[in-house]
Each structure stands twice: as C-alpha cells, then as structure tokens.
Design a protein around this nucleic acid. Sequence first.
DNA 1: CCTTGACTGTTGCAGTCGCAACTGTATAAC
DNA 2: GTTATACAGTTGCGACTGCAACAGTCAAGG
Lengths: 155, 155
Amino acid sequence: MSKRKVERLNLLKFMPFRLNRLAAEFSTALAVEYMARFGIDIPEWRVLATLGLYDTPRSAQYVVRCTRTHKSRISRAVGSLVALGYVARAEAIDDRREVMLELTPKGRAVYGELVPLLLKREEAILSCLSAEERAQLDHLMDKLEQSFDLVQCED
Amino acid sequence: MSKRKVERLNLLKFMPFRLNRLAAEFSTALAVEYMARFGIDIPEWRVLATLGLYDTPRSAQYVVRCTRTHKSRISRAVGSLVALGYVARAEAIDDRREVMLELTPKGRAVYGELVPLLLKREEAILSCLSAEERAQLDHLMDKLEQSFDLVQCED
DNA sequence: CCTTGACTGTTGCAGTCGCAACTGTATAAC
DNA sequence: GTTATACAGTTGCGACTGCAACAGTCAAGG
C-alpha cells in the first residue's frame, strides 16, 4: 500500500521558469540596441527611460519607485550616465537630501534616438501575436501585476 | 520647421520591462519555499527539477539544454547539490567526457516534498486569473517561446 | 535648541554570474 | 598511429548585484 506516486513538475510548463526565460530572451534581443551603440546597460536604460518620459527633473527616489529597482543599482547607474554626459545631477532646493536628476541635451538626443529603435524591436517580437492576442497579453500582465501590487507609480 | 515631437516610451507599458519585473516577482515569491527550507537557490532548483522528471540519469549537457542555463552555472549548481547529498555524479560509460547525474534517495525525497509546495504556490499566484485567462496565458507563452526558438528540449 | 527617528543617496563587501581559457575525451582524416 | 578538430565539463577572473552600514538632511517633540 501507500508509496503514492511522486508528483512531478515539468520545468517547461512551470510559469516562473517560463517567465524568466522569456524575459531574459526579450531583454537580450533589445539590449543590442543600447549596449554597443550608446554604452549603457539595462539599469542605465531604465533611468534614461524614466527621466525621458517627463520634461522636469525627478528625484533618484522617484526613479527607484518607478522602476522598482534597488536604490544602490540606480545610484550606480546614475553615476555612469553622469559620466557619459547623459544625465545631470542637482541638489533639490526644498529637500537637500534628494538628488534631482534630468537628462542633458545629449541624453535627450540619445533618448530620442533610442526609443523608436526599441519600440520597433518590441513590435517585431510581438508581431508573432495577433491584435487580439496582444490585447490579451496586455490584460493578463495587468492582472498579474496587480496581484503582485506592482502597479504603483504615482506621478 | 521640423523639430518633430519626441517619441516617448512608458516603461510601465514596455513589455521587456514588465516581463522582467513579473518574472523576478514570481521567482521571489516561490524562492522562499526552497531557499531556506532546503538550502538551494534557483539554478540548483532547476537541476533538481530536470533530474526529478525522469528515473534515469541525465548528462550535465542535457540539463544545460533543458534549462537553457549556462554550463558554468549548471556545473556549480551540481557541485552544491552533490555537497548537499541531493545529486550523485557518475562517469558515462559510452562517452567518458560526459558526467551523468541522478538524484540520490535524499534528493528524490526533497524533490517529492518540494514539487507540491511549488505547484501550490504557482496555483495561488495564478488564481487571480480565470480558467479561460490561464489558457490564454499558456497559449501566448507558447507562441512567444516559439518565436524565440525556446522550445527545443528533446527527450 | 537639542534629541530622536525617519528618510535620501552612496559605498564597502561578499556572493553570484558569464566569458574565456583549460583539461580531458571522442571522432575523423590521413 | 598521428594529427587535427570538436565536444563535455571545470575553473580563474572580472563585472555586476544586493545588503547593510554610513553620512547628510529633515521633521517632531520636549
């Protein structure tokens, strides 16, 4: 009796594994656009993307919340971007603990050049899905993100 | 003239970013099950899962292909698992370059204990989706994986 | 004012990762 | 048999990451 059959798990059907693989592949496919061309990596791209979305300076803390990336990672990414001349640091006037960040003209130029390339790449990858499937994907991501409380990024 | 409006990109709607975040959150939520309890990390879990699916030994190279994880990472993960007594290494008879791997009884016990826990966790996280939505998710992942050629893992 | 606690951003440190070089083995060509 | 090429797995090394400790700043309470 007993000796129940062992429950098995197919890694290829296991969602966290699949998501990790897909995310890694997706990122790698896009990274070629900014890695070599502009000398920036993923965390740096995230800072660039966050700052590029607005026309007014944002604090580092804001970037941390928006990108859900660890503050040490953001801090170092900002350091690199400043060294590259893409981002300028300035003290905040109202709260001198904060570091206000904004894109330099050079940084804006890179942003303006990079965004269409990345959107085109994303589009190319998602082109294996129909319009309806893409809407589904968007919807599913929304729901999963909400269940993880990943959505807060107030303006 | 000119000075076209700069195309912008909302990171929160950008699929590679969303996938990365979701994958990280998903993995973290599951990692608590095996990290503390059995002292293994993600690459080690992948090896365990691959070997646990079958009753016969597999080569390290097989695990590499199946998990799409770099061979150095697999090599080190196997080292840890051997040290923990979960996995046994043996030379292959037909090709002495290969290292054949199989779970020890202790490793099988861990696998048998771990799998239900992980499936339960996965289930809990995906429970925010309806049955239809889950089928959609599965289908979308399949299509995206195929477009990346992530599917090959022959038996 | 002064103390306490909280918050922002930086940095030292230890752990992890991927690349590339290396060892040992197999296979093919001669 | 010998040589050359290809492959499996390991390991040293440099790069990156997160954690925790830290310095500087702010706000509240006595």
